[in-house]
């Protein structure tokens, strides 16, 4: 997963086209329910199952992409 793909995913789930690579999910209209929709998409499209806590540590597209490419946990 690259930063662009993560940004597109955030934009889709948040229905917010303003999201950039450094946007914090929880400041851009996201909450825990929507966060799970990012995690299900990551699992489905990139084969990486992250926990909710993983996402709290990587709540921007840039951080999420690096967590995902860092490999499965």
């Amino acid at each position: 997963m690259n930063v662009y793909q993560a940004t597109v995913l955030f934009r889709r789930v948040l229905e917010n086209p303003q999201v950039t690579a450094e946007s914090d999910f929880f400041h851009a209209g996201g909450d825990s329910l929507l966060a799970t929709r990012v995690l299900s998409a990551v699992a489905r499209e990139y084969g990486v199952e992250l926990t909710f806590e993983d996402f709290l540590l990587a709540p921007t597209p840039a951080a999420l992409a690096s967590t995902v490419t860092g490999g499965p946990r």
Partner: peptide
């Protein structure tokens, strides 16, 4: 969380 995300995807 992934399982809940799949549930919410379907409901969405």
């Amino acid at each position: 969380a992934v399982a809940l995300g799949e549930l919410f995807d379907l409901l969405y």
